[in-house]
């Protein structure tokens, strides 16, 4: 154990020793963070897509819609998680160039990346990515378009539920819309370092 560690901890103990009592951890109920306009349970996916659109996410309901989006944007070169490709391949016309390994040396060559999400949060329109569930961190981040493929049984109603169900995984990312900044004069610009188009494809 380093001496600095012990020095810091000793100072922490000395600082706290004179306190007559320590502040207790407050009891708080889930209702405290319940949104006023909470949706009745049931149609969580409808709520998700509504919130997702509100944060400028692009909702997709089928492989055909996905291909239409990519064609419309002129995004023809991309990456797809090898585990997802068999289910999607049929939708892609020959003009598309889709790879199932992401070559970081050619990072600028990928217009889109298709990877798996491990969940979604209805209340906030959030997609949940995990390290074990994502075939390549870079493929989910570097291309202009990211498509997260999510399954119908993977929805959480709100943040509390999603926090209670955090998977055992070293890198969980909640994604709520495209990458953005308002650093320059407070003007909103999307697609800073991450995707400028964040899509969610509900499959299965």
């Amino acid at each position: 154990m380093s001496t600095e560690r012990n020095e810091i901890l000793a100072r922490v103990r000395a600082a706290l020793a004179p306190l007559p009592r320590r502040a207790p951890l407050p009891e708080w109920d889930h209702e405290l963070i319940q949104l006023r306009a909470a949706q009745p349970p049931g149609d969580t996916w409808a709520q998700f897509f509504q919130r997702f659109a509100a944060v400028n996410g692009t909702p997709l309901k089928s492989g055909a819609e996905l291909v239409a989006l990519l064609e419309q944007g002129g995004w023809r070169r991309g990456y797809c998680d090898p585990a997802l490709w068999p289910a999607l391949e049929g939708f892609f016309p020959a003009a598309f160039q889709v790879e199932t390994t992401f070559d970081r040396a050619r990072v600028d060559d990928y217009d889109f990346g298709i990877t798996a999400a491990v969940g979604a949060v209805a209340e906030t329109g959030t997609l949940i990515l995990s390290d074990r569930g994502t075939s390549s961190r870079l493929a989910a981040l570097a291309p202009w378009v990211h498509v997260a493929v999510v399954r119908p049984d993977q929805i959480h109603s709100d943040l509390s539920a999603a926090l209670a169900a955090l998977p055992d995984d070293p890198n969980i990312v909640w994604v709520t819309g495209p990458s953005k900044t308002a650093d320059v004069e407070g003007i909103l610009i999307e697609g800073v370092h991450g995707p400028g188009v964040q899509a969610a494809l509900l499959l299965g």
């Binding site: 944060v55 992401f102 906030t124 074990r132 070293p170 709520t176």
Partner: peptide, 22 residues
């Protein structure tokens, strides 16, 4: 003034085995 920030990351260690990046 956002409901939730775009990226909320929960990091608890180095990358998972098999993950090419990170």
């Amino acid at each position: 003034a956002q409901q939730l920030t775009v990226y909320t990351e929960f990091i608890s260690g180095p990358r998972a085995a098999g993950q090419p990046d990170g």
